[in-house]
Structures are given as structure tokens and as C-alpha cells.
Write a protein that binds this DNA or RNA. Structure first.
Length: 581
DNA sequence: TAAAGCATGAAGTCTTGT
DNA sequence: ACAAGACTTCATGCTTTA
């Protein structure tokens, strides 16, 4: 409660002071830092290199680890105070966006950020500021494109819309041409999601049209007010760019130039993260639109996840055989005991903990009081617990949590994948609960099969129990060299065991901590391996997941902040490989 | 000592009713 | 349009048990 209010306050302070900031020159991408003497802080920031007060040093280290220059981090902390990491990050992103491609500054290697990326951040900035008149004084220093964009933004178009329209209309298009395009686009878009009644007819009278416009504007403003920026919204059927067997709608997308491979990358995390998290992830991962998919379209359990990747999306194919899509098909033995009033056909998300024996016993007792169908009140109680803990019927009035091997099956892993090797039952559930759903991920990765008939070199971060490796293997994509980073020893053992059991011909290289992968190490790996074809990983969701009562702190949380290591490493790989070409 | 049991809501989105 | 209710969620930290 207090946190929310203070967050908004410091945001305001943040925006208001921006005009006065003396902005330093640096790119967000660490590319140029490779050629920049000051860049080593990004790769591996030692405490000794930090000149700030000791109380700040940890915080500074945190942001320097994300790839921001130390000097600027110190400044941003000063601006926002130590307490609010959110607004510090916002400020840093703002600086970086403003500084990313200044017209007068010739970028060295930094072709990483597409123009639209830059303009979007740039205009986010300006449109969030109240002082239009002051900004206008500076328009002379802007390029023609920037001026046009500014004008369009002032007309109320979003920067994204304006950028797209400018791209479509070409460099020589007049403002009028662009607004025409935007108007047409808005109509088409409106027709898509508004009720047919709302669709403006060509013959509609002037005032009606004005009314409609005003209504639309109000809606727009409301959206902006409530979401304070264009927050990413989850798609209605959560099918991303399509799932097998679903309506054969074809999707197209154009990737920002900075996002294109090599290497390909694939990032995963929970879809239902706190507000703003996916916006940040998107901004870091080269402005690629996340693909949100619920694995209930691939197996009998729900698993709502967001995936940011630069893979082609045409000609995907699923793993065969297709896994069972309902509880009854997946767990046929439960059918016999399944009461008609339990209408579930899908399981909820498979998590890291399971219901206790005591709980199922309480339920059994509650049910035994009734012969036949229990009253609605009891049904509701039982069903609530069933859904919360993913319980299934294993006898008369008898419910049970899923067995670990059933979870393995539902997630697409080979049976006994996590069994043995000294792992406890509790840890088995935990490792599985944190893993990919293989069929889902494999569907996305399937496009690599034709691209790399000879196999791929894989950089797998936060490997866990090897979901990425298993998916690629099941697709029949040979694994040449796999560099796997995983903090948990039991998980590393599981992957190692699987690697040997499946007679992999390639080479599996282990690392414990993503922090070990500094620029030198990555450069050395790339040199010896010959470059990575895919950088894959799902960073920890601990501080994003809804189940976390204690520390759902968002992307800046202790574990979830490791996302920035994924970005750091991916960006290093991109830069080093780009340099070698 | 290691593993299992157990209490601990908020923050969203989606649905329904008025 | 709006409010109220239903529903879902890659978990943590402490306590108890084997």
C-alpha cells in the first residue's frame, strides 16, 4: 500500500527532474563497451572499481551488473534515492534510450538498436514530460524523422503507431500521408476489437464521428492513466503465434533489426508477472514482442508462460506422438473414481509443492459423511482444494497429489528423468515445477531442425533439469556442444545423467553460476566452440510468481534479477559473434 | 541432519450481475 | 459502464518428523 504510493511519487520526481540532467554518452548494449576501456565494469564489476560510498556499493554493483556504467548508476541513485530500485532502473533506461543513438555521435559497433527502439524511448520521454513548450525549443537539433515523430506524438498517436506508419509510408512521406495511414489503421484496428456498432460508417454524420472519436480518445486516455504506459496485455486465447491443431490462422511478425540472429535466442518466464515486468524484459531483449502461450494447448496441464525469441515462426511442427490433452487421457486410472461433479478436464499449473497427505485425508473424511453426491457446499470445498493442489482421484473419496513421474510425463520429460542420484522427493517436485513444458518449447524450437541439419551449439542458461536439451533432442536436432549453466548440483547431475544415458555424441560443458561467464570466458568459449547457434534460458521466477507470499518483488528481486545476467550474456554473445563476422 | 508437513494472501485476470 | 465475485498462481519460512 505504502509502497505503491511512494513508487508513484518517486516516478514523478524522476520525470520532473529529467530535463535538468546532464546526460552522459553510452549505449545500453554492451557492444561498444567491448571496445571501450570503461567497459570492463559491465563484464565483471569488482568491488574495488566502485568509488561510491559503501552503503551504495551493493546497489551500484547490482545495476552495473546489468550493464549500466557505474558513473551513471551513481547519478541515478542520487536522483531517486536508494530505496526505489524501480525508478532508478527507469531513469537508467531513460538515459540509455536518450543516449543510444545521438545523431551527432557516430556509433562504433553499436548497430544493435533499431531506430524505432530509439525513437520509442525518446518519445516516451518527451510525451511523459509536461513541458512541451520547452521541448519545442530544442526541435532544431532533431532530425527530420524525429520532428515528424514529435508532431505525430503531439497529435495523440502512440510512438509505436507513428514509427510503424513512418516506416510503411517511406522516408519522403508527408505528415498528411502518414496521418492518413494512421487513420486507416486505427479504423481497421477499431473494427477488429470494437463491437460492430462502434465501427464508424463512411456515411456517418460529422458529429457522430466526432463523438466516436472523443469516446475513443477517452478510452485511450483511461488506458494511459491506469497503465501509465502501454503495458503488455496477455492475449485472449493464450496461443502465442499459434499452437498445433488450433485454428490455422497464420501469424506474421517483423523483428527489430537489433534482435535478429545469429545467434538465435529464446527466453522464458511466467506470464502472470507483476505489472511492468514484461515491458522491461521486452525492452532489454531488443524490443521483441513476447509470445504468451498456455501449455494447456500442448498437454493436460496449464502453464502460462511468456517466451521472447527471435526464431522464425513459420512451419513449426509438434513433437510426436502428441501427448494426451485431458486428465482422463493422461491419467486413465483416475477415470474410475472421478465423480461427475468434478468437471475438470485440465490440471492447473504444476508447481514446486504438492498437497500433503493430511489434506487429502481431511477431504476423504469430509466426503465420507455423505452417501453418493455430497452437498454443493462440500463439493465447492473439495473442488477448491483440488484445483489449488492439482489433486486427482485415486479411489472412492480418495484424492492424491500427482506422483513425480506423472509430473515428468505431463511436462514431456522421459520417465524417471529426475529419479535417483540422491535427489529427494521434495527436490524432485521442485526441479520439475521450475522446468519447461517440453512439447511447448519444442514446438517453438522445431524450426531449427531444417536450419541446422548438422546440429547446433547451445548455450543453456539456468538449465535446470535440461528442458531445452531434452526438447532439442526429442526434435532430432543433434547437440554438438552444450554449455550449460545451472546453480543446483542435483540438477546438473540429472542433466549429466541424461546426457550419458542418451549417448550424446557432443560435448557437455558445465558451469555453476552465470556470474562465472564474464566477457573473457564467453569469448574463449565462442572461440573454441565456433559460436553459439542458440542462447536459451528461463531465468528464476521466484520474485515474479503469484504463489510467492513473501518476496514477490518483481524483476529486481533477489533471484529474478538474474534476468539481467541472461541479457548480459546474450548481448555479449551477440556482440562477440557479430565482431567475428 | 535431511526430508516432509504446514500455514502464510496478494495481485492480477476473467466472469457475472446489475 | 461498473462493481463484485470467482479464479489462478514455475513459493517461502518455519515446524515437525524420520
Amino acid at each position: 500500500m505504502g509502497g505503491n504510493a511512494s513508487g508513484e511519487e518517486s516516478d514523478n520526481i524522476d520525470w520532473d527532474t529529467e530535463d535538468e540532467l546532464e546526460i552522459q554518452n553510452f549505449p545500453l548494449s554492451s557492444c561498444s563497451t567491448l571496445t571501450n576501456p570503461g567497459g570492463e565494469a559491465i563484464v565483471c564489476a569488482g568491488e574495488a572499481s566502485l568509488s561510491a560510498s559503501p552503503s551504495h556499493s551493493k546497489l551500484i554493483h547490482h545495476f552495473v551488473g546489468m550493464g549500466f556504467p557505474e558513473k551513471l548508476v551513481a547519478k541515478a541513485i542520487e536522483e531517486n534515492g536508494e530505496g526505489n530500485t524501480e525508478s532508478i532502473l527507469e531513469t537508467l533506461l531513460t538515459y540509455s534510450a536518450l543516449e543510444n543513438s545521438p545523431p551527432q555521435q557516430k556509433p562504433v559497433i553499436d548497430s544493435d538498436h533499431s531506430s524505432s527502439d530509439y525513437y520509442e524511448n525518446f518519445l516516451d520521454e518527451i510525451s511523459d514530460s509536461d513541458s512541451w513548450s520547452e521541448d519545442e525549443e530544442n526541435t532544431e537539433s532533431l532530425s527530420d524523422k524525429e520532428k515528424t515523430l514529435l508532431s505525430l506524438a503531439k497529435m495523440g498517436y502512440t510512438v509505436e503507431e507513428a514509427s510503424i506508419a513512418m516506416d510503411r509510408c517511406g522516408p519522403d512521406a508527408s505528415i498528411d500521408e502518414i496521418t492518413d495511414f494512421l487513420c486507416a489503421a486505427q479504423m481497421a484496428k477499431a473494427a477488429d476489437y470494437l463491437l460492430p456498432d462502434d465501427e464508424p460508417k463512411p456515411k456517418r454524420k460529422f458529429f457522430e464521428r466526432e463523438l466516436w472519436k472523443r469516446k475513443k480518445q477517452r478510452r485511450y486516455e483511461k488506458r494511459m492513466m491506469s497503465e501509465d504506459s502501454e503495458t503488455i496485455r496477455l492475449p485472449k486465447p493464450m496461443i502465442g503465434f499459434g499452437v498445433p491443431m488450433e485454428s490455422s490462422q497464420t501469424f506474421h511478425r517483423t523483428l527489430p533489426e537489433a534482435a535478429m540472429g545469429p545467434p538465435y535466442f529464446y527466453y522464458e518466464n511466467v506470464a502472470l508477472a507483476p505489472k511492468g515486468v514484461w515491458d522491461t524484459i521486452k525492452r532489454f531483449l531488443y524490443d521483441v514482442e513476447p509470445e504468451f502461450v498456455d501449455s494447456k494447448y500442448f498437454c493436460a496441464a496449464a502453464r502460462k508462460r511468456g517466451y521472447v525469441h527471435n526464431l522464425p515462426i513459420d512451419n513449426r511442427f509438434p513433437l510426436l506422438p502428441l501427448p494426451p490433452l485431458t486428465i482422463h487421457e493422461a491419467l486413465p486410472l483416475t477415470r474410475k473414481w472421478w465423480p461427475s461433479w468434478d468437471t475438470r478436464t485440465k490440471l492447473n499449473c504444476l508447481q514446486t509443492c504438492i498437497g500433503s497427505a493430511k489434506l487429502t485425508d481431511r477431504i476423504r473424511k469430509a466426503l465420507e459423511d455423505w452417501d453418493g453426491e455430497p452437498p454443493l457446499r462440500v463439493q465447492k470445498y473439495v473442488l477448491d482444494e483440488c484445483r489449488k493442489w492439482n489433486l486427482v482421484w485415486v479411489g472412492r473419496n480418495k484424492l492424491a497429489p500427482l506422483e513425480a513421474d506423472e509430473v515428468e510425463m505431463l511436462l514431456g520429460f522421459p520417465r524417471n528423468h529426475t529419479r535417483g542420484g540422491g535427489i529427494s522427493r521434495t527436490d524432485r517436485y521442485k526441479s520439475l515445477g521450475n522446468s519447461f513444458q517440453i512439447d511447448t518449447v519444442a514446438y517453438h524450437l522445431s524450426v531449427l531442425k531444417d536450419l541446422y541439419p548438422g546440429g547446433i551449439n547451445l548455450l543453456s542458461l539456468f538449465s535446470g533439469i535440461g528442458g531445452a536439451e531434452v526438447a532439442l533432442h526429442r526434435l532430432g536436432i543433434p547437440l554438438k556442444t552444450v554449455v550449460s549453466v545451472e546453480i543446483s548440483e542435483v540438477n546438473r547431475n540429472i542433466v549429466r545423467g541424461w546426457w550419458e544415458q542418451t549417448n550424446q555424441k557432443g560435448n557437455l560443458i558445465d558451469f555453476t553460476d552465470v556470474q562465472q561467464l564474464d566477457g573473457d570466458r564467453i569469448e574463449q568459449l565462442i572461440h573454441s566452440v565456433g559460436g553459439f547457434d542458440l542462447v536459451i534460458g528461463g531465468s528464476p521466477c521466484n520474485n515474479l510468481a503469484g504463489s510467492n507470499r513473501h518476496h514477490r518483488d518483481g524483476l529486481e528481486g533477489k533471484e529474478s534479477a538474474l534476468f539481467y545476467d541472461y541479457f548480459r550474456i546474450l548481448d555479449l554473445v551477440k556482440c562477440i559473434m557479430g565482431r567475428q563476422q
